[in-house]
Amino acid sequence: MTSAALPADEALRLEVLQRSALLDGPNEERFDRLTRLARRLFDVPIALVTLVDANRQWFKSCMGLNTTETPRDVAFCAHAILEDHIFLIPDARADQRFAHNPLVTGEPNICFYAGRPLKDLQGFALGTLCLIDQKPRELCDDDLATLEDLAQIAESELAGFQLSITDELTGITNRRGFLNLAAYGLTLCQRQKLPATLVFFDLDGLKAINDTRGHAAGDGLIRQFASLLAVAFRSSDLVARLGGDEFVALLVNVTVSDARRAVAALELAAIQEKQKPENTWDLQFSCGVVAFDPSRHGSISDLIEEGDALMYQAKRKKS
């Protein structure tokens, strides 16, 4: 058995996948509809939409299997995401790469596999739309074209999902995306006993800028702050715009003291931005920093609420 090599862009690919909010989510009719259709059109027992994570492939939609994931080192889809076209295995039992694979020699007894990589808006292959049969098969040109069409629809659904969790003004994660991703991050911290810290931000004086200079100026300030957040925090930190002038950052495996250092770096970046000749506004913000405590924070909403309260305390001290 031959395990798949890692894509050249693996680190970035995994980062995009983790931020997509697709992993470990609920079943969605938009994807289930496609796998039901694929199974019917190709008369196969199994059709899947898969996402290839660091050590597993997880099934966003699964028709014909009673599991939600398999190890990546035995996953056919880990091979498929390395391709730019449909990855086709007519008979895995006769293919040296797969003949001794436990998914071939045991349940679900894969014989035939066809997987078309699914790419996100940036071109990263996140997973596949795949067909599986327990007997040898070939696909004719019309079959390949049909699978390609279905895969393009699946990619459109992935793009729609990604856009639905992205803030249109700033390009960073929006409230919906943050709530999904942050819940996953807190679960990980509880499981691995890691610290987590939330920072709640509110821009100072945005209403006055909107009132005196117009909403275009206010929007510019919001975009500028989002850009500074990307500089001050790590790429692994979850940064989002909750709405209006409110932003939030969840830092996994980071203590409050380390989070405060990141905030200090953000304050310095804001001062440096203010000193640029082309800058015509004063970017200031207030924030609340709170450590995740599972005994007090039953959900990410509880953590946000406390961060919000601490932020208002800091804002009142300025007035």
Rank of each mutant, 00 (worst) to 15 (best):
A151N: 04
V254A: 05
D219E: 08
E246F: 07
Q152M: 06
A145P: 01
G205Y: 02
C287D: 05
L194R: 09
K193W: 01
V239H: 03
A196S: 15
F161W: 15
R176C: 01
S227Y: 01
S235I: 03
L266D: 01
A264I: 03
L229F: 00
A269W: 00
S235C: 05
D149W: 09
S164V: 02
Q224A: 15
A262Y: 14
Q192M: 08
L188N: 11
A232Q: 11
K207H: 03
L194M: 10
L144A: 07
N180F: 06
P195W: 07
E155A: 14
P195Y: 07
T173W: 09
D245I: 07
V254K: 06
R176G: 05
R241H: 06
R175V: 11
V252A: 13
P277F: 08
A240D: 09
S235G: 04
G160L: 13
L186R: 08
E148F: 03
V231I: 14
L163D: 04
E278D: 12
L150G: 12
R234Y: 09
D204R: 01
F200H: 14
F233V: 07
T170Q: 07
G244D: 09
N279R: 14
Q190T: 11
I172T: 12
R213C: 14
E157P: 04
N279W: 08
T212K: 13
A196I: 14
S227Q: 15
G214D: 00
A262G: 04
F178D: 12
R241Y: 02
Y184M: 12
Y184W: 04
A240C: 06
T212I: 10
Y184R: 14
L206D: 06
S286M: 05
E273D: 15
A159T: 13
E155C: 07
A249Q: 06
V231L: 15
F233H: 08
V199M: 07
V199S: 08
V289H: 10
K207I: 05
A270R: 00
G214N: 00
G160I: 03
A240E: 10
V252T: 14
G205K: 01
G205R: 03
I165P: 05
A265K: 15
I165F: 01
L268A: 13
A259L: 04
L181G: 02
D219M: 01
T146D: 01
T173K: 11
D204S: 00
A159Y: 06
L203R: 00
E168N: 11
A217K: 02
T280L: 11
A262E: 05
R261G: 05
D237L: 02
F225N: 00
A154M: 10
P277Q: 08
I172M: 07
L194A: 06
A208R: 13
A249I: 03
D143L: 12
W281Y: 08
R176Q: 13
R260W: 06
E148C: 07
V248P: 11
D167E: 10
D143E: 04
L238A: 12
Q272H: 15
T197K: 08
T212W: 08
L283T: 00
G185Y: 04
T212L: 15
A183R: 15
L169F: 04
G177M: 02
I209F: 08
N174D: 01
D143V: 05
R175S: 09
